[in-house]
């Protein structure tokens, strides 16, 4: 199984490099935008105060009490690029781990290997998990590097590390939900629907904050990843981590179970 996971990761190397590059550019722009000038930072704070609260929630995953470098980082980079777009991509990739054998006709080679379906899916999950770890390291390193170069000391610290570490179970949940949807949806729909679901989940979470629809927010996965709070206060809830980890295990287990008995007309 590990041999297959290594092979599968070989196929994902280009994605790791591409995403690392894109994330680094966006991080560089974010850190550079914040910069060292206090005058400019006050201007940002004034500007964001003018924004409707819903817009702040949507783009910042909450409304920051004070707009510091960490909140600016979440608002400009982390919330939409890392949580939503990267999460959607990973859900897309997770669904692809099931349906690409059908869509790209690689199934005859992969499913005729001496690996059970469960092992095959687990190996692919592990290979995507390595991709997630690689992106975590790349994003952290880029943040620290550009923050050091541009003198934004607040971004070189524990909070940003915690933020990235907490993102790992969240991103793995995106992967395993993608895998689960890959086993139950028609192949042509599985990837786009999985990606769309991550966006919908995030929008539902942020838009329900502090409204009558608040209970709906607790049904979303991203509610258990309070990125703004972690980045600004450095607090991590064991419950949130537990919920995300349990959901990863459940989604992956169900995906493996269904995949084992699924007809693969390859």
């Amino acid at each position: 199984m590990l041999n297959y996971a290594r092979f599968d990761f070989r196929l994902r190397r280009r994605a790791l490099l591409g995403w690392s590059l894109v994330l680094s550019v966006i991080i560089a722009l974010t850190v550079w935008s914040w910069g060292e000038e206090e005058e400019l930072q006050r201007l940002y704070e004034e500007l964001f105060k003018q924004f409707p609260e819903e817009l702040m929630k949507l783009f910042g995953k909450g409304v920051p009490e004070v707009l510091g470098a960490e909140a600016f980082y979440v608002l400009n980079y982390f919330a939409w690029i890392y949580i939503v777009i990267l999460g959607a991509y990973l859900a897309f990739v997770g669904a692809g781990a099931v349906v690409d054998d059908l869509l790209e006709r690689t199934g005859p080679l992969n499913l005729s290997l001496p690996l059970s379906r469960r092992d095959l899916l687990l190996a692919r999950f592990l290979s995507i998990a390595v991709l997630v770890l690689g992106l975590t390291v790349a994003s952290l390193l880029a943040t620290f590097l550009f923050a050091a170069l541009m003198g934004v000391e607040e971004l070189i610290g524990r909070n940003i590390v915690l933020l990235h570490l907490h993102a790992i179970p969240y991103l793995l949940l995106c992967v395993s939900v993608g895998m689960l949807l890959g086993t139950v949806l028609p192949p042509a729909l599985a990837k786009p629907v999985s990606a769309g679901l991550v966006v919908l989940d995030y929008v539902m979470d942020t838009m329900s904050m502090g409204t009558a629809l608040e209970p709906l927010g607790y049904l979303t996965a991203s509610r258990y990843f309070p990125a703004l709070e972690i980045a600004t206060k450095g607090t991590v809830s064991a419950l949130d981590l537990g919920v995300l980890s349990a959901l990863v295990a459940i989604a992956l287990f169900l995906a493996m179970l269904i995949y084992e008995g699924k007809d693969m007309p390859i």
Partner: peptide, 25 residues
């Protein structure tokens, strides 16, 4: 029985009528 078939597949040489290789290799 997928798990037992996994072991049997070690002894099978299979060629499909329609297939693709992973790209980029």
């Amino acid at each position: 029985d997928d798990r037992k078939m996994a072991r049997v597949r070690e002894e099978i040489g299979y060629l499909a009528e329609d297939f693709s290789f992973p790209r980029g290799l």
